[in-house]
Nucleic acid binder design. Structure first.
Length: 210
DNA sequence: CACTCGATGTTCT
DNA sequence: GAACATCGAGTGG
């Protein structure tokens, strides 16, 4: 399980005709490919308290400086710096009381990342329930802040190397199904809210919202 | 240093 | 569907 990780997910990329509403330029972006390819793979965090993980069922792509929704659209800063680094590292940022986990995708110098928005709970469910303070599986990891809390992912894992650190992407699970592309969540209208860069399994009950 | 604002979640009505 | 809790980063003095 430990050997699969990032390169495994990247190698599963296939261009799908379902993206025909995207501008042509976005087809060329590896991050869009990664956002789709990561669906169905398992995300695992091995912490001293125990191992937790789930199947990635919802992602969002954030595309460099041309994307007004991307943190890097304002240029390189202390916060978004990890996005400029080489791919395969974590970009974790805080919003309100939550941590949001991104996987850096593009080559060094190109600030792109995939936000992990929801997991289908698989491993360490009891520990995740304990961390979240609730029992219902549907609510454990159905949001970017929820899943980091469930997995015990904090800002301490910012810049973590996903091929070395105890946080990693495993092999694809058997579950799959049709993928839906919609607009991203939580962006103000002028921040690229109209771009269909959110992907999720159409019939999966663990996505953050319909 | 003081202010503003979220790629959010929970708890209300 | 709306209010709000809450904190690190960004921005402008």
């Amino acid at each position: 399980m430990r050997g699969a990780k990032w390169s495994n997910a990247m190698s599963h990329f296939r261009i799908s005709g379902a993206d025909s509403s995207l501008p042509r330029s976005y087809y060329l972006k590896a991050t869009v490919d990664a956002a789709r390819a990561l669906l169905g793979h398992i995300l695992v965090h091995e912490s001293p308290e125990g191992t937790t993980g789930g199947i990635i069922v919802e992602t969002e792509a954030y595309l460099s400086q041309d994307d007004p929704g991307c943190h890097a659209s304002i240029g390189r800063t202390r916060r978004n710096d990890p996005m400029f680094g080489p791919p395969g590292y974590a970009y974790v940022y805080g919003i309100h009381r939550c941590a949001c986990l991104n996987l850096v995708t593009a080559p060094e110098g190109v600030p792109e990342a995939v936000l992990i928005r929801a997991l289908e709970p698989v491993t360490g469910i009891e520990l995740m329930q304990q961390r979240r303070g609730l029992l219902r599986l549907k609510d454990l990891c159905s949001g970017p802040g929820k899943l980091t809390q469930a997995l015990g992912v904090t800002l301490a894992l910012n810049r973590a190397d996903l091929t070395v650190q105890p946080l990693y992407v495993g092999a694809a699970a058997v579950t799959a199904g049709p993928v839906v592309a919609t607009t991203r969540i939580g962006l103000r209208p002028e921040k690229g809210a109209d771009l269909p860069l959110r992907y999720y399994f159409a019939d999966n009950p663990y996505v953050s919202r319909r």
